[in-house]
Design a protein around this nucleic acid. Structure first.
Lengths: 142, 142
DNA sequence: TCCTCTTTGACCTTTGTTGACTTTCATATA
DNA sequence: TATATGAAAGTCAACAAAGGTCAAAGAGGA
């Protein structure tokens, strides 16, 4: 895959986080931009598109002298959105009697326990895929 | 029969996939079009007519700078060892009345359709995870 | 001829890149 | 203490660089 500048900066930041002890790094926006020979707002763009809470990251920053951007990876909340959505969806299906209580229990158990060896990004994709498939299944059988 | 341009592009892509490690390639639409001296939408046409899910392929793409099209060949899941094992296991559960026919149908549909964006290896891992989880679930409820 | 598949191109949508301008903060200075 | 100054980061809109859509025209075979 040809990597865009944004891709490279993303990867760079992820390596830094991976190497860190506390899943947390502090950078200076201008300095990072300098490293990649681009404008500082490019870094802002990368953070806005690839390090959102949805992606399992939280960033806080301070302006002015000695300013910084701190990026923290929250493994806990990672893929939480998809997980929550999927659970909510399954609840709805039960409410509308599209599935039974027994099926719901099995599904919830499954999605809670079957994918613990995947990283949060993969989990997100898996949950999305399952949601889509269940949705299709229900549509087929209604 | 004379080979159309679309046929040639199709063959070209299939060779690339055959040579790849993971049954998956990434191309740039414009670049491929350049190679065959045609308009980019010709490539789109080839993908739409010869690399559909029915044909056993899944394509995803990204627009914008350094965009790409990723084409994945989804070999028949039935030939995947983990898939076969999982299906067999689910059949057993039904036979022992650990799950109902309804549950079985849902599960089979799910594992057949939910993970098409993953490559072979990842699917294997996913199926293993699901099998383990179902096994645990049944043990808990017997 | 007629029908189906192919080819093309104009226009659309999404994603990435840049730079001018704004806001916030620490610190030096009156 | 109040204010000025400079050094950060944020915002936003214009522009660039991909891929997508769709309809019309072309080509070839039954």
């Amino acid at each position: 895959m040809k990597k865009s500048l944004a891709d490279k900066i993303e990867q760079y930041i992820k390596v830094l986080i991976a190497r860190s002890e506390s899943d947390q790094i502090e950078i200076q926006r201008a300095e990072l931009a300098e490293t990649f020979s681009c404008v500082p707002s490019q870094v802002t763009y990368v953070l806005a598109t690839r390090f959102t809470e949805r992606d399992g990251y939280v960033t806080i920053s301070r302006r002015g002298g000695k300013g910084y951007v701190r990026i923290t990876r929250c493994e806990d909340t990672a893929s939480l959105r998809e997980f929550t959505e999927l659970c909510g969806f399954i609840d709805e299906l039960l409410a509308y009697k599209a599935i039974s209580q027994v099926e719901k229990d099995l599904l919830i158990y499954l999605i809670t326990n079957a994918f613990k060896y995947f990283n949060h990004q993969q989990k997100g994709q898996i949950y999305d895929g399952i949601k889509q498939a269940i949705s299709d299944y229900v549509n087929l059988h209604e």
